[in-house]
Amino acid sequence: MAEKLLEIKNLKQHFNVGKPNQVKAVDGISFDIYKGETLGLVGESGCGKSTTGRSIIRLYNATDGEVLFEGENVHGKKSRSDLKKFNRKMQMIFQDPYASLNPRMTVGDIIAEGIDIHGLAKTRKERMDKVYELLNTVGLNQEHASRYPHEFSGGQRQRIGIARALAVDPDFIIADEPISALDVSIQAQVVNLMKKLQREKGLTYLFIAHDLSMVKYISDRIGVMYFGKLVELATSEELYKNPIHPYTQSLLSAIPLPDPESERTRKRIVYNPNIHNYAEGEAVEMREITPGHFVYCSEKEYKQYKTIYAK
């Protein structure tokens, strides 16, 4: 797992640059994604987690910073063929299974679109065989290939979205809230499917979500975002056991658990960004508290956190 697949260095994504309504949606975040792992990204809506995902896959042109995929910069000028090569390796699954499938294309054509663009099938038969195989992989039938998206339920559509992402044999998949729009009983089906595919194909996931218990379950490491910044990054076990940043603590304390007893006694921690009280010019950055556990803090806080942690 030591091998880095993706390096994100000081990525910035600002909108409306130079206008009064400039938004710093992502404001200088850095992290690595290792081969074969699942990195979860959590935070409230508007914290920039989806924008991060979209900038990584080049749906937006980054304002500043670098995204290195296998050592190669994703952004910047690229020839058509380079871009094509890159697009094959990185795919995305979207949140809304109703809006992300073209209603005028059959499921077969939706899945085969990537195969056609990249010329992965030589004959018609080969193309359809690939589609059938993909449909089987995600738990749908061959007959579904000739149907249209409106004939499917939400969970089935999300399976189609996954099949489409898999069609070009990617190494890395960005899943932007893939289960938020689904029912509880169906969520577990899709998550199980994604885990199965990861085991079989050695995929790497960036899993963006706000359902913290599901993120904990699927991710190896989790990054917590707040206002365009990454505030804490750790393995999922570590993050839930020893949350250090006050925002992470507040976020974890707000998750409702399916257990009446713990709910009755739950104390919610409220996060107030003013407690940091950073002085002007104080260097606030990601610092490593214990190996693999990074927290966004100042030098002073770093010492504080370390002593708290040592206890």
Binding site: V184, S185, Q189, V191, S213, M214, Y217, S236
Partner: peptide
Amino acid sequence: MPSLDTSVQTELAA
């Protein structure tokens, strides 16, 4: 539903 202490190895009972 995974609870916060469901381990990563166990498959969710969908």
